[in-house]
């Protein structure tokens, strides 16, 4: 699109690692934050050179208490097949799974990316994943975890918190979310290079980045604001369901290191696919 010089869109939502890669590849506009909002008002890591944070979402563990008699207390219970036998669903992607594998293997959250940047760390993470490989059902699309839980195909699943909350609130499913050891990520929004209405795009980015507007999204799907000063604007009934609600940050949690995934993502994806196929 950018290469052909015909850019029919002015804004695009992207994952953080993709923002970094797109920035390097020169297909995303470097943002002028003076036209958006003060950069220091964003949660760290959610205001990037080529993309501004839209919301914060959590990679969490979900289960059905009518199926699991004992409640898991941490996402890392994925790796405990003696206490929680049965199939578990995980995203068919190395990010998050490798982090959880290392943490389940005893690496402190603060050291996860340091360890994962070494070849031995990668081997260690895959070894840990090996221990539950035969019990994993892989999901690709965000709607699948709730389906897999509902059809009782799996006893627990990793998921994006909003999808599970949606199944609980709208479809009245009895699912429960485990926040301990969640991984926090941000949805980003970028301007592709060569967009025709850059100024309008900036106006939109400025609008959604206003604290009260940034907080509004939480009323529609339970993803949290990325501005540090937006919490007071969040609707009271939505607040306790957000991944970055104070209660959910009391336990262990990890903020996804997007720079790490921008650098190592491609190789780890390849390695992961080879591991999957073996």
């Amino acid at each position: 699109m950018v290469e052909t010089g015909n850019v029919p869109i002015d804004l695009v939502t992207v994952e953080t690692a993709t923002v970094l890669q797109g920035c390097d590849a020169g297909i995303l506009e470097r943002l002028d934050y003076s036209k958006i909002a003060p950069r220091d008002k964003f949660i760290q890591g959610s205001a990037l050179d080529c993309g501004v944070g839209l919301d914060a979402y959590g990679d969490i563990l979900a289960y059905d208490p009518t199926v699991l008699k004992e409640a898991p207390t941490s996402v890392l219970d994925l790796f405990d097949t003696t206490k929680f036998p049965g199939k578990r669903a995980m995203r068919k992607f190395p990010a998050q799974n490798l982090e959880w594998a290392l943490m389940a293997d005893g690496v402190a959250p603060a050291d996860v990316y340091k360890v994962l940047a070494t070849p031995e760390g990668v081997v260690r993470a895959f070894k840990k994943l090996d221990t539950i490989k035969k019990d994993i059902v892989w999901w690709d699309a965000g709607a699948q975890p709730a389906q897999l839980l509902a059809s009782k195909e799996v006893v627990m699943t990793t998921a994006w918190n909003g999808r599970i909350q949606n199944a609980i609130d709208t479809d009245k499913k009895p699912f429960k979310i485990v926040w301990n050891n969640q991984i926090l990520e941000y949805d980003m929004i970028s301007i592709p290079k060569g967009a025709r209405n850059t100024e309008l795009a900036y106006k939109y980015l400025a609008y959604i980045s206003e604290p009260k507007n940034n907080a509004k999204l939480a009323s529609y799907i339970t993803y949290g604001p990325v501005r540090t000063d937006a919490a007071s604007f969040v609707a009271p009934d939505a607040l306790p369901k957000l991944p970055n609600a104070p209660d959910h940050l009391k336990g262990a949690y990890l903020v996804a290191d997007t720079e790490f995934w921008g650098d190592y993502g491609e190789d780890l994806v390849k390695r992961f696919n080879a591991w999957l196929a073996q």
Binding site: D24, A25, G26, I27, G262, D263, Y264, E266, D267, K270
Partner: peptide, 16 residues
């Protein structure tokens, strides 16, 4: 970027 990607296919890690 094209070059980085193409070299990465032969030499993992070359992209960044």
């Amino acid at each position: 970027y094209e070059l980085a990607k193409s070299l990465n296919a032969r030499l993992p890690g070359a992209r960044s």
